[in-house]
Nucleic acid binder design. Structure first.
Lengths: 119, 119
DNA sequence: ATATATTGATCCATATATAGATCATTTAAT
DNA sequence: ATTAAATGATCTATATATGGATCAATATAT
């Protein structure tokens, strides 16, 4: 009787404070960078191959966006999360841990993703 | 005629080299950190509230995962993307741009997301 | 060695994110 | 002040990511 009317059928996922904050910050950064470059939402969305609505959600820090879309947008507006030159970012991090990885049993990393756009 | 048999009905999204690389790196980092802490995939998945399959994709650097799930996992295994203390990461970045943001027309940032887990 | 646990991969059903349209509001320009 | 452009918000249909199950392969322990 209390059927599925407006009841969520699967409990919505929860997120840690940290994740929420990080995404809010990232979204804000992206928005600021876009403004700074005087790019319209539509322009950036087009270049990223996404809809304006999705860009809105990204800039708001919505946790449920494709991470790929977020990274594309970040790159387009110039927010470099893991700059190859910045030694304090991911890439250097990976260097530190990469050897550990190669020591591990089965870590033959072969890429097989389709890549397009050039940056 | 050549109906929709196995034809993709909407051209799959493409990603820049940069995004692919960044995600591959991040996934590798996460995996290395998990191993280092001797956590099983199932354990981490449970703590993050996701399936083991999704964790597999995250560690592989799949661009189509929820960014929220990726951030949760990263936090759990101890990969801090935007450490509050590290002055070279996002949080410091945001400080630089936050004032610019507040100067912009309509930037009243009000949070309204549901937050749970404590870190 | 055998047994046990973990991982990698694939399939399917379902929940859900996304594109696209629309409209109201706000901003920028004249 | 008027106009045009950009944004914020909401809705629906569709494409798609996710959970869960299963199985093979690999790793770990005894």
């Amino acid at each position: 009787m209390d059927q599925n009317k407006i009841m969520p059928k699967s409990t919505p996922r929860t997120y840690s404070r940290y994740s929420c904050d990080a995404l809010t910050l990232l979204g804000g950064l992206i928005r600021a960078a876009r403004k700074e470059r005087k790019l319209t939402a539509q322009e950036v969305a087009d270049r990223a191959g996404i809809s304006r609505g999705l860009l809105q959600r990204i800039e708001k820090g919505d946790l449920k966006c494709e991470i790929g879309a977020v990274f594309e947008v970040a790159a387009i507006v110039g927010v470099k999360l893991f700059d190859a030159d910045d030694d304090t970012t991911l890439r250097s991090h990976i260097r530190q841990t990469e050897d550990k990885l190669t020591l591990l049993p089965k870590s033959v990393r072969k890429k097989s993703k389709v890549v397009h756009d050039e940056f």
